[in-house]
Design a protein around this nucleic acid. Sequence first.
RNA 1: GGGCGCUUAGCUCAGUUGGUUAGAGCACUUCCCUUACAAGGAAGGGGUCGUGGGUUCGAGUCCCUCAGCGCCCACCA
Length: 847
Amino acid sequence: MANIPEKPSLDGIEQHWTERWEAEGTYRFDRTRGREDVFAIDTPPPTVSGSLHMGHVFSYTHTDTLARYQRMRGKAVFYPIGWDDNGLPTERRVQNYYGVRCDPTVPYDPAFTPPFRGDPPKNHHAIGVSRPNFIELCDELVAIDEQIFGAVLRRLGLSYDWTYLYSTIHDNARRASQRAFLRNLARGEAYTQEAPTLWDVDYKTAVAQAEMEDREVTGAYHKLAFHRADGAGDLLIDTTRPELVPACVALVAHPDDERYQPLFGTTVRTPLFEVEVPVLAHTLAEPDKGTGIAMICTFGDVTDVTWWRELDLPSRAVVARDGRLVADAPWITSADGQSRYAELVGLSAKQAQRRIVELLTASGELLGDVRPITHPVKFYERGDRPLEIVSSRQWYIRNGGRDAAIRAAMVARGGELTWHPAHMQHRYDNWVEGLNGDWLISRQRFFGVPVPVWYRLDGDGQPDHSAPLVPDESRLPVDPSTDVPTGYTEAQRGAPGGFAGDPDVMDTWATSSLTPQIAGRWEDDPDLFARVFPMDVRPQAHDIIRTWLFATVVRSHYEHGCAPWRHAAISGWILDPDRKKMSKSKGNVVTPMALFEQYGTDAVRYWAASGRPGVDTAFSEEQMKVGRKLANKLLNVSKFVLGFPVPAAGGGTVSNPLDEAMLTRLGAVVVEATAAFDEFDYARALERTEEFFWWFCDDHVELVKGRAYGADESAVTALRAALSVLHRLLAPFLPFTTEEVWRWWQDGSVHVSSWPVAPASGGDVAALDAVSSVLALVRRAKTEAKVSQRTPVSRCTVTAPAELLAALVVGTSDLRNAGSIAELATVEGPELTVAVELAPAPPAPAS
RNA sequence: GGGCGCUUAGCUCAGUUGGUUAGAGCACUUCCCUUACAAGGAAGGGGUCGUGGGUUCGAGUCCCUCAGCGCCCACCA
């Protein structure tokens, strides 16, 4: 049986067991099992254009411990992994890697080879390639990146079933994404609309509310004079965006503001451009901000959009999609106004501001000094310049941002989930209740899932957006830029009376919001889907509750009428040892692979699993060293216990009260660890197990060693029973080490063994405690005497209350063995003390 | 402005319905080559549990106040 190495080692166990698990199909999902026997996990697909960092290691380990626990509980664990290789991050990486950019006007070149593969020189000017060529490069590069990612995830010991690997850009994901969209469209949940949209002028794409973030930037207040139409003087307004004066459509003050009440309904002329605009009242205007009266422009910020909509104002957009001022502002009618505007045409917003300030200064309409301030401004989270608001046609999915009933339904769906930790639900509620618009899903980009519709063109070649042409689901996925709607021919593309494909792709969240459907092969494999959906858990980080989690709830709500999972397990972030979020720019990022090699995977997993659910956790190599110690200890104690002859075929009997008590104590640990895992609290399960494990090694094994050497049946049987339980309790955390030691004496993988049940209770826990206390005092006496623990004790006198002395009786011989005590005497007394007479030590060396 | 979380030893953190003298690991100090393990072991010092109140026989734990730190959301003229 036992095949125990002379000198057990952790070296190389990762590769060895990874290969064995792969060969043996240890983590293969058993798809014959019914939904009630399945534990399904909606794993976050990593963005392959980035790199795997310690944050992935951290949260992926958490999920893996849960998966391993559930597998040992007898569940068929559906634990697929996918790649999020779709969208803007991939485009950007391809541009940088190959030195190309996508130019849809360039024709496809089947023989194209990129100028570089990795690291183009800094002065290289990106060459334009066709959209199909660009997408081929995307496919090529993600395949390379995915190889590297796969190697890291396997090395981390994640128990995925790789046969269910998915990718958000491949056909099945595109099909699912387009199908879900078309069903949203058919039910009226998706719609297209021309509307003011948050816009990134560098990426030249619309951006969703969820992808927007505030940044503190410098700006300045400018006090401008608007001229009353009745000639009775000027109205002063403060603005940080004077370049938008040509886009001004009204002034607005609070209806209760007595300073401006007489002016409501009158008009003023704008500075420089002499456009007549009304003075209006709206409750969003704040009397104590600036001069209490604001200029409404189309569009300076989201409040402008509200005013524009609610006050039914005209649209006078001056900022174009490239962030520059448009060529024509026909609403400016005065000759002076026109000539001034002509100076601004083509300038960026920043340049225009500089010029307009000069013009205002010259005209005397800029009053007082420009007052610099810093203020929060909205940016696309990946962008470098402030977002503009431009009017454009986009696709939306209703998410409650414009409808209280839908919003309430989404909040209720969130409430159906069990959140771990519970307080993370507040973030969800907070976000959903604060939505101020529907979910914008279209993007003016290339590498993504196309919006799967076409538009009829009228006799003038103008598209009819009110009734899109949609493909039959059996045709999916489609690319409207190359596929033709049913009933049309390619020759009719772009021709009057013909059709035009929707030019946009869907945002990456519009596809990744369907990970349960994609991973579960919704509609492509209905049998599988029925066994895994709704899933048991979505593990993810807290920063994407508002995006990924919420979007997934929205899609599931509409398509399936239920929440997509039962639990949301939210992990924290990794902070560097200074408690700041780890970031590349600070140069404090360590690569996972280097740590696996230095400490061993199980040690790194131990650090990760020590981080409690949802709690931001410091990166700590010290913790990894502790994990390494734990793994080493497990090897050694296993070798020690298994080194004793097996007491009896079919198992011996545990009869000693101390042995029974140890198992009783272990039973309590099993109960606690099990309860903790059922609550998704892997960290507590580990902590309790570990605490017992060290006690077991340091105290119990030391105590019963003597009997074990003497082949005492009870001692060895109990040690082996405890070892079996410990191997399994630790298996979710230290999958490699536990597998290594388990296979020394058991058939098959520990990872498909059954989760331990509490050993039968019994024994004499009081005796075990009493013996432990006395042994600790004997050890202390030896330490204080500065002698080896092995030093013989000629006589040991234990003074203690009668009760304690009575408890000690069953452990007397173990105690004498463990303490090397020749003679043990007991005396009744008020409290526990131990007097030790050491056998004469050999003379110490002179130094 | 609204919300959430945190504050316990030098550091990182446990402390579940209130209940002996508040725990662990790391770090620090001392000792020990001892035949499972020196990549080890035995032991030690170190805390008025953020502030101020309250409830209670009893509060790290429950209630209120305040402060500091972190995060989410809103505001952005």
